[in-house]
Nucleic acid binder design. Structure first.
Length: 421
RNA sequence: GGAAGGGUGGCCGAGUGGUCCAAGGCGACGGUUUGCUAAACCGUUGUACGGGCUAAUACCCGUACCGGGGGUUCAAAUCCCCCCCUCUCCGCCA
């Protein structure tokens, strides 16, 4: 959520930012409601001051044994007037809040303006592997090696689900443990294993609700949602809390399953496991001081990149254009790993700085040494998402005779085996 | 699913209708003392919103906030109703 006061003082800047993000959010309506509300507040607060003063006087009169019945009767009418105005104020406040929750974050100045086509490659690592044979797609490899079962997954759950089997399951497990270990031991993150079901407040806190409701699985009877990313439970861990300045920065790494309906992307990437309804992910979440957040953002990006470097994959980093960023982000890098079977770059991580946007929604603050409280900045990145990394391993590490050469970094996590065959 | 307790400031914890501007403690900050640290003593110490005055997030005034919502009352942390959360015990299940 943006700061209403900031909107009030920077109307032009905010409108420009929203335009860059292709948002149709109506700032004017919010400002108009806000003005009306402040007018009413001014009026009713004077009345309340009167009420408080007179009530106090009546208390004293009564203690002296004086008759206060007439004055009481007058005050009853006056109090009712206050209640009526309070009700109006409450109505307006709710409308403002509802509108504010749907206003996206505005982009940082470093973000290129435009749509997906304006995303900028800011860095490339490694090189595409040269094959002296025709590389297979991951779904062909999965079937041949019998390590992922798409058909039976569809039978028990539906399209867009996968079942890992044998060495496929082992590879998935190995990847999770490998990534967790790197972030915990080498990058100083503290591990958290959160619930995979969260309440509505948590989903609102990180910005998935209200706008992305159609893309989430929910258990309506209990008002619970299946998490689309560990970002949701982990960020909301500290909702309503106040850090001391010494506690920051705080780094968490978290493994979770992620659940996404992928509404609106039917027919896209239907083959294989590029886009599935349930997948595993190792997520990095940071809580930092506002003045450090862009420095921390670069470090975060690097932490995620290291995973791909250790696995030895060619990848590129894209700075997303304003219109391609998510609702809550102020600046975002995507890491895309190259996969030869499908011959494309696959997004394995979004590395975002949300500034105080999520912190304001979830009310996560810190107390500065001066004693002042302020919102923290939150950031997160996948470190990294599993299915596409799994794809990249199969397609990049395949041998001519149809085996998968396990990357060296993963071998200790797979009982020392060198090949999946 | 049943029964009982609890939810108060950064934290702990008192508070059964007006004097609550929420006691007291801890912590934090400032000061005195001190070779340094500690201790002791003195003082300060919430958040949000609105308004005034501004260079100002400084200062002044007001309002609201004691889990959330509603009610009673001239007046609610306090009384009543509903809900949420939490904890203990019982039952059921793993």
């Amino acid at each position: 959520m943006l700061d209403l006061k900031f909107i009030r003082d920077n109307v032009g800047k905010v409108k420009e930012g929203l335009k860059k993000k292709n948002s149709k959010a109506d700032i004017d309506e919010i400002l108009q409601l806000d003005e009306g509300k402040r007018g009413l507040l001014k009026e009713v607060e004077v009345m309340k001051a009167d009420r408080n003063r007179i009530s106090k006087e009546l208390g004293i009169s009564k203690a002296k044994g004086e008759d206060i019945s007439q004055k009481s009767a007058e005050m009853k009418v006056f109090s009712q007037k206050i209640k009526d105005i309070d009700l109006k104020v409450e109505e307006i406040t709710q409308r403002i809040t509802a509108l504010m929750l749907s206003v996206p974050n505005i982009p940082n100045e470093a973000v290129p303006v435009g749509s997906e086509a304006n995303n900028k490659t800011v860095m490339e690592w490694g090189k595409k592997r040269n094959f002296n044979f025709n590389p297979l797609s991951h779904w062909e490899l999965c079937e041949k090696l019998d390590i992922v079962d798409f058909k039976r997954a569809a039978k028990i759950s539906g399209a867009g689900f996968v079942v890992f089997k044998g060495k496929g399951a082992l590879l998935e497990r190995a990847l999770v443990n490998f990534m967790l270990d790197v972030h915990i031991r080498e990058h100083g993150y503290k591990e958290v294993i959160p619930p995979f079901l969260v309440n509505e407040a948590s989903m609102t806190g990180t910005g998935q609700l209200p706008n992305l409701k159609e893309d989430m699985y929910s258990i309506d009877k209990e008002s619970l949602y299946l998490i689309p990313t560990a970002e949701v439970p982990v960020t909301n861990l500290y909702a309503g809390e106040i850090f001391s300045e010494e506690q920051l920065p705080l780094y968490h790494v978290s493994f979770s399953a992620c659940f996404r309906k992928e509404a609106g992307s039917y027919g896209k990437d239907t083959r294989g496991m590029k886009r599935v309804h349930q997948f595993d992910k190792v997520e990095l979440v940071k809580f930092v001081l506002p003045e450090k957040s862009y420095e921390e953002h670069e470090k975060l990006l690097n932490n995620a990149e290291i995973i791909l470097q250790k696995l030895g994959f060619h990848y590129r980093v894209r700075l997303l254009a304003s219109g391609d960023m998510s609702f809550a982000a102020a600046k975002c890098y995507d890491i895309e790993v190259y996969s030869p079977g499908c011959n494309e770059y696959l997004e394995v991580s979004s590395c975002s700085n949300f500034e105080d946007f999520q912190a304001r929604r979830a009310n996560i603050r810190y107390r500065a040494r001066s004693g002042k409280t302020a919102y923290v900045h939150t950031l997160n990145a996948s470190g990294v998402a599993l299915p596409r990394t799994f794809i990249a391993i199969l397609e990049n590490c395949q041998t001519e005779d149809g085996k998968i050469a396990v990357p060296e970094a993963l071998q200790p996590y797979m009982g020392g085996i060198a090949y999946i065959d």
